[in-house]
């Protein structure tokens, strides 16, 4: 973390009269624009546990870190992050630590929704740390991406099912990507208690870490190439495939977070992101 100025979270304003124990509701908003060869943030608004910090820029690329300033999401929480990358802007967003889905006193599941809009000729690298599903937690997360035809995206999501040696909570994730108005990718996974066959040989076969890395770039070279990674129970399994459109996708499963990270690193290198 660099000594860049800290952004001030806007005060979270819970609706009046909401009874205690209903979980917290928070929405963070990020708007980036390109100005004179660099990227600026006319809107950078944290909320509740979602804090945003600027990192040192990397040339023309602005960098941000999403910081979870208190333990969340607990069951019953509703978190949301809205990101708009304006025409020509170039942004890298990561998170300071894993997002740990926790059980909580409020009834029902937690929600964590991410909406990413990347406009003409803009670039977004969305590479947060993994989501960890703790025993007894119930999280529904969604990532919705809207891309302009000339937008570029590198997006990673990693899911760790349970901390070491504990059963997982329930983790429901949907990733949908629309490019130029049509849906390019729609994936929905449900793991943990109540999801039939999730741990069986068709879905995860005992693996506890899984993730996807998506690259969308209209200028992708050799889009038809398939690359297999790992291939043993110890190394985990991964495959980089061409999507039916301007994209490539890594799907990986691994016995634990460390092995999954190595598959991601190998895939990033293969996709030409050796700098991460």
């Amino acid at each position: 973390m660099t000594a860049a100025p800290r952004t001030r979270p806007a005060p979270s304003s819970p609706p009046a009269g909401r009874p205690a124990g209903r979980g917290l509701h928070a929405t963070a908003r990020i708007v980036a624009t390109a100005e004179a060869g660099s990227t600026r943030f006319p809107l950078l608004q944290g909320d509740g546990p979602l804090d945003l910090r600027r990192l040192r820029p990397d040339g023309p690329r602005a960098r941000l870190c999403l910081l979870n300033a208190m333990s969340s999401p607990h069951n019953g929480d509703r978190l949301r992050v809205e990101v708009t990358i304006g025409p020509g802007a170039d942004v890298y967003i990561t998170s300071a630590a894993a997002t740990v889905a926790l059980p909580g006193p409020a009834p029902g599941h937690a929600c964590y929704d991410v909406v990413l809009r990347v406009e003409e000729s803009a670039r977004l690298r969305w590479l947060p740390e993994p989501v960890v599903s703790v025993s007894g937690s119930d999280l529904r997360q969604s990532i919705r991406v809207e891309l302009a035809p000339t937008a570029r995206l590198l997006l990673g999501e990693q899911q760790i099912l349970g901390r070491a040696h504990e059963p997982t909570g329930r983790l429901d994730s949907r990733l949908s990507v629309r490019c130029d108005g049509r849906t390019l990718l729609d994936q929905h996974t449900v793991y943990g208690p109540g999801a039939p066959g999730w741990d069986g040989p068709a879905v995860l076969a005992g693996n506890r870490a899984t993730g996807q890395l998506l690259l969308i770039d209209p200028a992708i070279e050799d889009p038809s190439c398939v690359r297999l990674l790992g291939g043993t129970p110890v190394e985990g399994h991964g495959v980089i495939v061409p999507l039916p459109g301007p994209g490539r996708l890594l799907t990986a499963v691994a016995p634990d977070a460390g092995v999954l990270r190595r598959l991601f690193d190998a895939a990033l290198c293969h996709l030409g992101f050796s700098d991460g």
Binding site: D186, H188, V239
Partner: peptide, 14 residues
């Protein structure tokens, strides 16, 4: 629905 099974995808290519 868009339910997916990571291992079915990976092992299909393998």
């Amino acid at each position: 629905p868009a339910a997916s099974a990571p291992l079915l995808d990976i092992t299909a290519e393998q």
